[in-house]
């Protein structure tokens, strides 16, 4: 059982700004990601490889985060989002962003977690149910933003 708290708005915004630029903004988002549309689920596991935390992002936001990390044009990200996939040349970046996002759950927290994998999910295979969740909207200048959910399993 992992006792690490879920990230605050300030924590999420600071991390995203460090990774993607100082102009990134985060806001509280009541509905969170729409699980009836394609979305990306990142899983974070404990030392026993049990999933303890997830990060769920709308696909558009996921492609944007991966693209923004190395300034891949927004059009590439947007085309992939329309196709319902993570762009091939963005996937590596997105993996690294989500890897670093482990710090949303572990900074100044007792339990060690590591990033396990990311999956593109949809209405037929949606993100797993969570016990608790916080939801934020992320705005990345020049890219499509979207909603993000950080949850405990």
């Amino acid at each position: 059982m992992c006792s690490n708290p879920l990230p605050t708005l300030n924590t999420v915004e600071k991390l995203m700004q460090c990774l993607l630029g100082n102009q990134v903004e985060a806001r509280n988002s009541a509905p969170g990601p729409d699980l009836n549309k394609p979305h990306v689920v990142a899983s974070y596991v404990d030392d026993a490889q049990a999933v303890q935390r997830v990060l769920v992002c709308e696909l558009g936001l996921a492609n944007s985060m991966g693209a923004a990390m190395s300034m891949i044009p927004a059009g590439v990200a947007n085309d992939a989002t329309k196709a319902g996939v993570v762009a091939e040349n963005i996937a590596g970046n997105l993996g690294e962003v989500l890897n670093i996002c482990v710090n949303l759950f572990t900074e100044n927290a007792p339990d060690r977690l590591t990033f396990k994998d990311l999956q593109v999910c949809g209405p037929k295979n949606p993100a797993p149910p969570v016990k608790q969740a916080v939801k934020y909207a992320i705005d990345i200048p020049r890219y499509i933003g979207g909603s993000l959910l950080a949850g405990s399993i």
Partner: peptide, 8 residues
Amino acid sequence: DSKAMRMI
């Protein structure tokens, strides 16, 4: 192992 991270 991430080229983007090496760039950063």
